[in-house]
Design a protein around this nucleic acid. Structure first.
Lengths: 323, 323
DNA sequence: TCACGGTCATAAGGATCCACTATCGGGGTC
DNA sequence: GACCCCGATAGTGGATCCTTATGACCGTGA
């Protein structure tokens, strides 16, 4: 005894076609089922909506009124639903991403190209930031996804490993240290070092590594952008320390790039998201593209057998809440 | 696996209240039932709409988008439904009526007063016409209801008897014929007669009655409006023949009104509607008021035990199709 | 005039759906 | 650590809905 979407659609079809039988065919049900549907709708409204004639059915005044109001409503509802299904099918939507500058220049562009190939309608809204800011933006819901160093932040954030890269020293090929396959930190300490500013996660990584060997880092030059450091290294101003995945390394093919250590300086880069929250489909697609691109880096990152990011579109069983 | 109005309402409530439990209370179902409803909606859309948290539930990006589109849609639908229910409850609507002038001045006004007393929001749109036009307007759907003489029209029209009235002669009280209780047609034939124009059903009735007695009617004066004839009778211009229910008779209390015959001239006035078509609720209410008012006329009209006009609001069993 | 093809209505049976009760698992709080 | 609140799950009984089969009625054409 209640108004049903099915009943309204049924009525709309009958009113439009002027026939129970034909409308039943259109709705893929039998005519008796349609008759019952209409009767229930009429009972729910307390109104006769259709006059049955020997030639079919014809809306009453009330029926015409309902049909007129109903038509745009049903159309708009269908539009809303199909728009949401577009979103679910990743034919629409934007992923809001906060990423480290090194990843934004390195891993991200090919991942975006991959995304565009598979899901051409999806957009990426990129914010470049350092790890702390990235965590904060994910926590605040300003972005769906973050790419940052894996610092195991507490609270409501979840970080899934994406790839592991290492810090490389960028130096002139005729530099004495360039003869080595890897450059010990002890030997670097006396060199003129070109480093990112202290709020960068790479800089912190470098500082920590030197500190573990009991050394203080005193950079010859600091910069915000990796490209600046590469330019300085090209000009012979010193040795730049940059992550291996940063695209800026390719700016200067004439320079030698050497790993540090042993043991070297490594960092784990991960995908950051809010635990217990499902990712929007577009962000899910971007995450997949990023993981696929990261898998091409050797060695493949150690990852648990099941991808920690579940597909939001696969609804059963739903993801457990944040743990 | 389909989108349901119930499911959409359920989602809307949960999104608005931020809690399954509270929304379930609002919807008068239990929380597990609501959980299932939401799960089915999510499955139908292929999207996660709500993120479950320990404190309740919160819409995802898709959920917010749906909630935003859904709110006006549901409100408008509810409005449409309640507007139709107003119509069904006779709190709204207009009855389109075509009536004979004599009825429009006689029976109709008290019936409209009765209607206003019981259903103050209903309107009556009145067309005054002669019987042939009335039948045509009902047939064409220009009006919902007609009041005309019962000529047993064929086709798709149904006429239900409303009342029976007779033709009265209106004449000065000092006229010799006024001494009789009833005036035979034979005596009238020699008088100066004041008659309606030939397209009126009353005129045709009078003509036919005279013709059955082998006489031709030669009116001293013709008019379109009954009031004109009454005025002429008042002025001593002749004897006016008018139906007993016409309110214009009351214009001239100083004139004597006498029935004709025996056998007199009678007519049956009936409610005309399209067979197989249900009456709009407002027209149904008007018909009821008209029947109630007609029942006050003595003698009560002979009517079948069940009112031939069924109530459109009572849906089972529905009226059979046109016979 | 009678059979036929069309309409919608009705009835009965079976599958499906749905809401309820009872219970569980997890998180936060005192 | 013991509650309390949250949502998820399982199981069951009842309502719902669709299907097939059939009926009543109308209009048409042989």
């Amino acid at each position: 005894m209640t108004v049903t979407l099915k009943g309204l659609r049924a009525f709309s079809s009958v009113a439009r076609l002027g026939s129970f039988t034909r409308a039943a065919g259109l709705l893929h049900i039998t005519q008796p089922a349609l008759t019952v549907q209409i009767r229930q709708l009429e009972a729910a409204l307390g109104l006769r909506l259709l006059d049955r004639t020997p030639h079919g059915a014809e809306p009453t005044a009330a029926g015409r009124e309902l049909a007129r109001s109903l038509e745009p409503l049903l159309r708009e509802l269908d539009q809303t639903v199909s728009s949401l299904q577009d979103l679910a099918a990743r034919r629409r939507g934007a992923a809001r991403l906060a990423a480290l500058p090194s990843v934004a220049s390195g891993l991200l562009p090919p991942a975006m190209a991959r995304l565009r190939a598979t899901h051409p309608e999806l957009h990426v809204r990129l914010h470049e930031a350092v790890t702390g800011q990235i965590y904060e933006m994910v926590r605040a819901g300003q972005v769906d996804l973050g790419i940052a160093t894996d610092l195991k932040p507490g609270g409501e954030l979840t970080v899934d490993p994406l790839f592991r890269d290492q810090i490389l020293a960028l130096l002139p090929p005729d530099h004495p240290l360039a003869e080595r396959k890897a450059i010990p930190l002890a030997l670097l300490a006396g060199e003129r070092l070109l480093l990112l500013e202290p709020d960068s996660s790479i800089r912190r990584l470098v500082d920590d590594a030197f500190a573990r060997e009991g050394r203080m880092v005193t950079p010859a030059q600091e910069a915000v952008h990796s490209g600046t450091l590469v330019g300085m290294a090209q000009a012979g101003l010193g040795i730049a320390l940059l992550p291996s995945t940063a695209a800026e390394l390719r700016m200067a093919p004439e320079l030698a790039a050497r790993p540090l250590g042993p043991p070297g300086i490594h960092r784990m880069v991960g995908l950051v998201r809010r635990g217990g929250r499902s990712l929007p489909p577009a962000a899910e697609a971007l995450a997949e593209a990023l993981r696929a691109e990261a898998a091409l880096l050797a060695p493949p990152p150690r990852r648990p057998p099941n991808p920690p990011l579940r597909r939001a579109a696969r609804l059963s069983p739903p993801p457990r809440r944040a743990g």
